[in-house]
Write a protein that binds this DNA or RNA. Structure first.
Lengths: 223, 223
DNA sequence: GTCTATATTGGGATAGAC
DNA sequence: GTCTATCCCAATATAGAC
């Protein structure tokens, strides 16, 4: 249980605090074996869930020895933390990339909305996060990381709305929360019942409501 | 794995299909030992999560013998199914009770919105569902049950809006989905970061948007 | 119906050779 | 750094006495 006595690089890496959008942090710098293990763990998480992430299953999927997990990540908890870090980093970078391919303004808002609609409709994309959430709520270290991810989401949305600074910021913070909540909430309904729940109609309605709101406030009008 | 060869009452109970709001279905009719086990499992799920629901932990919490779980529920899967049934039934009844204490109209809509706000702000109330969701997505029998729960939610919301029948129904179905999605999504953000995320501001904004929408459509105006 | 005791499996961790 | 072999423990399931 006490990671401080272990050998190898697997001991908890010290890091001041997790910068929300740290440039190229996390894992591409890992030794190849560690990378294999991490991506294997991720595949299992995505396809079979958290409960299926046994060390044996991960080692087999990775084509590495089970003991190598201990060497590189200390223990299972260390592996999970590294995995969450990689998920968080990639998710955040995904949203940023998606929106920044367009110049500020209507186009970028469009890209944001369309990106979110795509996430809602792609069941697999929401799965890893949903698998991790329950554990994150019981583990302070995971909770903080996922929480940073959400803060980064909110920040990106504000930026897309051209409100990352300025007087609109306070007003649009809750709006950003609603945008994110809608993605999560509709993803759940879509995953539970893709047939019965008409997610497309719901996202269309939501888009209408967004437009009405932004127009009323004299903000960007996405026609 | 094959439940068909077991002894005792624990074999999978046949049921035609799960009526969304079946009057008093599920578990109050269980023998006392089974009830103890079920409520104990539930306490553990709420307080320590799905992963902590080992048969030993449940038996200890219930003050019953571990083997009695096998006798009454067949195996662990049978217990989980019964647990989800009880959660679903209670959750649905909760929403119905909450809204039906008022006459149709503005008051009932108010009760709906306030009930949802309370859920968002009460972290514990969302927990059991969030714990179960990942498993429900991998287990068809659980998925169907939770999916019925959501269909029941939608139905209740339509009824509160006085649109369970009639031409408004098709139009308001997506609206009901958004209402539910917002509860789920904001609950997540609140659980992850009660301090950093200003959930009250977000729910207030959402209420504004709801009102504007319903007013525009000439539907119930909740002043 | 309920309990004790046990069979069996699989998980995480690590020692020690290479 | 990597691998094999092993240890220890917890978990599910069930046999069989009561």
């Amino acid at each position: 249980m006490d990671g401080s006595t272990r050998k190898g690089p697997g001991r908890p890496r010290t890091r001041g605090h997790l910068g929300a959008l740290s440039a190229k942090d996390p894992i591409e710098v890992l030794p190849p074996t560690a990378m294999n293990i991490l991506t294997a763990a991720r595949r299992i998480l995505e396809q079979e869930g958290f409960g299926a992430m046994s060390l044996s299953a991960i080692a087999e999927e990775a084509g590495e020895a089970k003991a190598s997990i201990g060497y590189h990540f200390g223990n299972k908890e260390g592996l999970i933390v590294a995995l969450v870090d990689s998920l968080v980093h990639e998710a955040n970078r995904g949203l940023v990339d998606e929106t920044h391919r367009f110049p500020m303004g209507e186009q970028r808002v469009r890209a944001l909305i369309e990106g979110e609609e795509r996430i809602v409709e792609d069941i697999a994309s929401y799965r890893p996060l949903l698998e991790i959430l329950p554990h994150a709520m019981r583990d302070e270290s995971l909770r903080a990381r996922i929480s940073e991810l959400y803060a980064g989401y909110r920040e990106t949305i504000l930026e897309v709305l051209d409100a990352s600074t300025g007087p609109d910021r306070a007003m649009l913070q809750p709006f950003a929360m609603l945008m994110i909540a809608m993605v999560d909430g509709l993803s759940i309904q879509n995953a539970l019942d893709p047939e019965g729940a008409n997610v497309r109609a719901a996202t269309a309605l939501w888009e209408q409501m967004i437009r009405a709101y932004l127009r009323d406030r004299g903000l960007i009008d996405i026609g």
